[in-house]
Every structure is written in C-alpha cells, then in structure tokens.
C-alpha cells in the first residue's frame, strides 16, 4: 500500500495535480471552485480520520471535535489578537493537536473498540456543548461572524491571489497546497518506522506487542498528527466560510459525513477518503434542492456501502481490472481454463 509509486502511478498523480492546478485558469466559475474547495477540506478531514481509523485501527468517532477546535481557535485568535489567518491556522492546528493528545492518552489505554467509540463521541459532545454554552466568546448558535479572510498576495505566474467570496482562486490554491501537504505527511508517516509498526498492530496487536513494539507512542503520534490535520482543515474552513456555528463546525452530522466519505472511498486506503470526499461533496451539491433528503441519503449510503461494498469504491478498481484481464485471458493463455 505504501510501496513507492510505479512510473505510471506517478504520471497519474502528476496529471491529476496539473489538471487541478490549471482548473481556475480555465474556468472562473466560482460555484465549481466552491464545490472543489469543500471536497478538499473534507478530503483532508477524511484522510486524517482514516489515518487513525483505517491505518492505525483506532476506531474513533469524535474527530469533529478537532475540526471545531481548529475552526474556532483560528477564528477567535485572528479576531481578537489581530494576527493574520496565515499564522492563526497553524496555531489552531497546534491547539487541536494538544486536544488530540489530551483525549488520545486516555483512549489509548483502552483495547475495547466500543469503549473508544463511546469516549471519542462523548469528548466531541463536550467540545460542542462547551462552544455552544460559552456564548460570550463564541456567540453560540447565533454564529461567530466577521472572521477575517486571508490577506491577498501576488504570485509570479498566477498573478494576484485574492481571498474574497467572488474570487475563490486564492482559497482554491491554498487548500490544494494543504491537501498535498496533508497527503504527503500521511504517506511519510505511514512509510516511517511508526507506520510499519501501526500496520503490524492493526493486523495483530498482540503479536506486535510481544515483539516489543511500543504501541502507545506510535498510536499517540498518529493521533496527534491526525488531530493536527483535522484542526488545520477546520481552521481553513472557518476563514473560508466566514461564519461558524457549533452545529455546523462541531456537530455530529459533520462526523457522519466524513465517515460516509471514508467508507464510500474505501477505509484503509490512501486515495479512498479523497475520492469519497469528492464523490459525496458532489452528491450533496446535486441534492441541494432535496435538502430534506440529504441526510436520509447519507444514512442509506453508509448502510449500503457497509452491507454490500465493505471496502468501498476502492474495491471496484481491482474488480474492473480483473474483468479486463478475464476478457483478455482466453486469447493469451487458453490453457489456464482447462
């Protein structure tokens, strides 16, 4: 899974990136950019959740807490201290990391999956209710607005990068860079010694432990990195959307959305959560008119994928490939079928 990419895979990645980078030059349709920006925010979120749940095997259900902590921290620090969002998103990501380590420590002592699920859900509820109750600071469900946008700057080739609701190219490129950063960080982490230990632990926790692998340290590292990335995505989200409410930024719905994305794309794969985020974000936009049905359909999607497509869309890849080889097989080696 984390073997070095083959040449054709590198080519595929390069073409995808080039196409994504060129898109704003070809189309200034801000609606298309908006959908892609949201896809990439959720792509980072889903990948980071997958890092903990799919790769490290720690089934957490409370990562929306870190998204909300990231979003509110960056917005509040930028609002009150006058620091630039360029700086505050990193501060916010670090605050989310600290929160991640804080909740990561107790849950890493627990082997039982249901306990981990319950505690992480409970933790996220504490965060949501706290943000909602501290109205003097966060304005609660009335919404925290007036969050400063990123300052614009000028790039040699692409010209001035603006961050306004009308011109979304700046946001687009920024989140694209953050997505590449996040995917690269996850890949590096999984190829490191910790990553290898984690995969070993996911497959056979007792065996890895008997080999003397210190799981707690590796798990904590992964949990911290994951919280960092989700916090970063949340911070960007706040400055991009411009208004935050506890239900939109820390609500359980958000976690459900991200879980659906990772499941649809394929849990425990690198590209799965990214594909899932793109597919489901587009589905949401297509269903904009059917807003009442949106969550109903999410529920149905999760049920369907778990029941009938347990490894997500990622499993369809080899299936398609197998069908192609099967079609070709009789001409190349008919003997095999005898």
């Amino acid at each position: 899974m984390f073997e070095p990419l083959r040449p054709w895979q590198w080519l595929l990645v390069a073409i995808t990136l080039a196409a994504l980078a060129a898109l704003p030059l070809l189309s200034s349709n801000s609606y298309v950019l908006h959908v892609l920006i949201l896809s990439m925010i959720f792509g980072i979120f889903a990948s980071a959740w997958n890092l903990v749940t799919g790769f490290a095997g720690l089934k957490t259900f409370g990562h929306h807490a870190f998204f909300g902590i990231g979003a509110y921290s960056s917005a509040l620090v930028a609002l009150h201290s006058g620091l630039s969002p360029w700086l505050t998103i990193w501060i916010a990501a670090l605050i989310a990391t600290v929160a991640g380590l804080f909740i990561g420590l107790p849950i890493l002592r627990i082997r039982s999956m249901p306990h981990v699920a319950i505690v992480t859900l409970g933790f996220a509820e504490i965060v949501r209710i706290t943000i909602s109750n501290l109205q003097s600071i966060t304005r609660g469900e009335l919404g925290l607005w007036g969050i400063p946008p990123f300052e614009s700057f000028t790039l040699p080739v692409l010209g001035e990068m603006k961050f306004t609701p009308a011109d979304k190219a700046g946001y687009y490129y920024l989140i694209l860079v953050l997505l590449v950063f996040s995917t690269g960080l996850i890949t590096l982490l999984m190829r490191s010694k910790s990553g290898l230990a984690l995969v070993a632990m996911r497959d056979a926790e007792d065996a890895a432990e008997s080999l003397g692998v210190n799981l707690t340290r590796h798990k904590l590292l992964v949990f911290g990195v994951s919280a960092f990335l989700v916090g970063l995505a949340g911070a960007f989200f706040g400055h991009y959307i411009g208004i935050l409410t506890p239900s939109a930024a820390v609500g359980p719905d958000l976690m459900i959305l991200v879980i659906a994305m990772a499941l649809v794309g394929g849990l425990g794969t690198l590209s799965g959560p990214l594909v899932g985020a793109l597919v489901l974000t587009c589905v949401v936009e297509l269903l904009r008119d059917l807003n009442d049905l949106r969550l109903l359909i999410y529920g149905a999607i999760i049920i369907t994928v778990v029941m009938f497509l347990p490894k997500g869309l990622a499993t369809l890849g080899p299936l398609v490939r197998r069908r192609i080889t099967y079609l070709r097989a009789p001409t190349t080696s008919p003997a095999k079928h005898l």
């Binding site: 089934k59 699920a117 459900i256 879980i259 499941l263 529920g299 149905a300 049920i303």
Partner: peptide
C-alpha cells in the same frame, strides 16, 4: 466489530431523517 458500529451509525441517520 467495526462494520456493525458503522452500519448502526448509518441506520441512526436513516431512521432519524425518516
């Protein structure tokens, strides 16, 4: 162990919105 948690999550959303 995980797939049952995930499916009940889906069921929860589904029933809620039904």
């Amino acid at each position: 162990a995980f797939s049952t948690i995930a499916v009940t999550l889906g069921l929860s959303i589904f029933l809620q919105n039904s």
